[in-house]
């Protein structure tokens, strides 16, 4: 390997690593707030990429119908729950979230898609279409058993992954898509030339990560999420509703997932079932961060990206084996660090 190839691999690794970092942070956020190991994060990546790809062909993406359909189901569930609890409170905002907005989005998509709007509008529409699936997932799958054990929540997460993946097949088909690059220029950076597309991805990820950091530090809702993550009961006692925190965490995770999908779409062909593997690399990053540390998780995800890039050069057939085997030394290290007897209160 010469210097140029090494630089190229590093550039590749950093680009993928930046995307994995977004996913690692989303997975960490969801786990901290709701204790759900968010396996379906990958589906949001695939939905983001495929929605954008469909819009670029001037067609109405399946997500538009999916959001309207799942929204309707969520509304029915919400109505039944309200009827049983004899309450009216919250129904208006539910109707807005589950019916009005999805219907409006469907209308928008049907109207805009054939006109082939500029790229930025396509990206925004993609995010708008995919993100509502986050809070809907929380409402339908997680909220009814939010207090179950981590293990049961993990089963739910896997089941959601299955359901969303199957729906992805119905609404997007079995064909894979790769979108054209957003920008095609090459930028000279000292001794190397980098593709502007890679720089764009890294910059966009960095901006989103900083935004999340600011959100946690500066806003009331960000602090509420941190409080819920630290102590759920305590947070509820001071008036932070667990449901709202969960919904918000799932919304943010959906945003990060869909955005990752948009970013990754020009680099690799995405199929309806491609998300799982991509998100698992985010998981590896999150585990490196001990499922608690955001900076370590982001760093771990970048490490995963770099390792993957070099592995694909040296032993491309074993790329995935090498990346996932990275978990073994990490787990060994964590295992040696842990001293206490683990107490599981799962009944």
């Amino acid at each position: 390997m010469n210097f140029d190839i090494a630089l190229l691999l590093i550039q590749d690794g950093l680009t993928n690593g930046a995307i994995y970092a977004l996913l690692a942070l989303a997975i960490l956020l969801v786990f901290a707030v709701s204790r759900v190991l968010y396996v379906p994060q990958g589906e949001f990546v695939a939905f983001g990429a495929l929605t954008l790809a469909t819009l670029q062909q001037a067609k109405v993406p399946g997500t538009a119908y999916l959001v309207a359909g799942i929204g309707a189901v969520a509304m029915v569930v919400e109505l039944v729950a309200a009827l049983r609890e004899r309450r009216r409170q919250g129904l208006a905002s539910s109707a807005l979230l589950y019916v009005v907005i999805p219907t409006a989005l469907l209308g928008l998509a049907v109207w805009l898609a054939p006109q082939k709007p500029p790229l930025l509008v396509q990206v925004l529409l993609t995010l708008a279409l995919v993100v509502p699936l986050g809070p809907m997932t929380y409402r339908l799958a997680v909220q009814p058993i939010a207090n179950a054990s981590v293990l049961v929540l993990l089963f739910v997460a896997v089941a959601v992954h299955y359901a969303l993946m199957g729906l992805g097949l119905v609404f997007f088909g079995a064909e894979g898509w790769r979108t054209p690059s957003f920008v095609s220029a090459q930028v000279a950076l000292g001794p190397m030339t980098a593709s502007a597309q890679s720089l764009l991805v890294i910059a966009a990820s960095a901006i989103l990560i900083v935004a999340l950091w600011q959100f946690f530090g500066r806003t009331l809702w960000g602090k509420a999420l941190r409080a819920t993550a630290m102590n759920r009961t305590g947070a509820r006692l001071v008036g932070i509703p667990t449901e709202a925190s969960g919904r918000l965490a799932f919304t943010l995770a959906a945003l990060f997932g869909a955005f990752s999908g948009v970013l990754i779409a020009p680099f690799t062909t995405i199929y309806y079932d491609s998300g799982f593997l991509v998100a698992l690399k985010g998981f590896v990053g999150a585990v490196i961060g001990g499922m608690t540390s955001y900076p370590l998780a982001a760093l771990g995800a970048v490490l995963v990206g770099l390792l993957e890039s070099f592995a694909s050069f040296y032993a491309s057939a074993f790329k995935e084996v090498i990346v996932f085997s990275l978990l073994i030394p990490v787990l060994l290290w964590r295992s040696l660090m842990s001293r206490h007897v683990e107490e599981e209160h799962d009944e």
Binding site: L37, V150, L154, L280, V287, V321, L331, R334, S338
Partner: peptide, 28 residues
Amino acid sequence: GLTLRLSGHYLALGTIAWGISLSYVFGN
């Protein structure tokens, strides 16, 4: 030996990763 001393979810994640690795090993 690597994962059982940690919380249950590490075993779950560890086995997912190892399961994927192994199916690639079988294939390659």
